[in-house]
């Protein structure tokens, strides 16, 4: 038998190691999913109204000519509370328009929270059955989409938006989108 056969296991192993190293050094979270909706128009969905608040309509989104955020949230969701202050910051300090999608929530409690902690949302749509979230491919609350001025989904952030995220991802993407065309 020729000698090079004996190198096959080693070569296979080296290939494996290359893949592992890539995975490790990029330090990707394997449970994090990219959105399949990227670069697609925000789907034409219809929402219910949260009393006392502006109703989120699809016309809102498409008529606005600046990049905006869509945030999926609920009053029962603990990480949402963490991100709330940061959403307020985005709205007030950076004057960014944020649309809220209230996900499977007790509407009274949702209202209370907005009264208590402030309302970061330009308008709110209610998704009481969770179907709209499924249509958006949401798999956990909170989730935030960044839309460009044409209403196309350009980025998805899973989990609460922390100060770090605002600084490192959200704002840079927004500025870039604003500068584009």
């Amino acid at each position: 038998m020729k000698k090079y056969y004996y190198y096959i296991p080693l070569i296979t192993f080296i290939l494996l190691i290359l893949f592992f190293s890539r995975q490790l050094f990029l330090n990707k979270d394997p449970s994090h999913l990219p959105s399949v909706m990227l670069d697609e128009s925000f789907p034409k969905l219809e929402f219910n109204q949260l009393e006392k608040y502006n109703l989120l309509t699809i016309e809102d989104i498409f008529s606005y000519d600046k990049p905006s955020l869509v945030n999926v949230w609920a009053s029962w969701c603990v990480p949402c509370k963490i991100e709330h202050a940061n959403l307020m910051l985005l709205k007030n300090k950076h004057s960014i328009r944020i649309y809220g999608i209230n996900y499977k929530d007790n509407l009274q409690e949702a209202d209370e929270i907005l009264n208590l902690d402030g309302n970061p949302f330009y308008s709110i749509g209610v998704d009481s059955s969770g179907r709209i979230a499924i249509n958006l491919g949401v798999y956990g609350v909170p989730e935030t989409f960044i839309l460009d001025r044409n209403g196309k989904i350009r980025y998805r952030h899973v989990g609460p938006i922390l100060e770090y995220d605002i600084r490192e991802t959200i704002l840079p993407i927004l500025t870039k989108l604003e500068q584009d065309d």
Binding site: K3, Y7, P9, L10, F13, I17, N27
Partner: peptide
């Protein structure tokens, strides 16, 4: 991740080393 890198290094040392030795001496 630091643990992952350490185990990866062990994997390279033991598996890589032994398979290299195999390629060299098994014939």
């Amino acid at each position: 991740p630091s643990r992952g890198i350490y185990i990866l290094l062990m994997l390279i040392l033991f598996t890589g080393g032994s398979l290299a030795l195999f390629a060299k001496n098994a014939p």
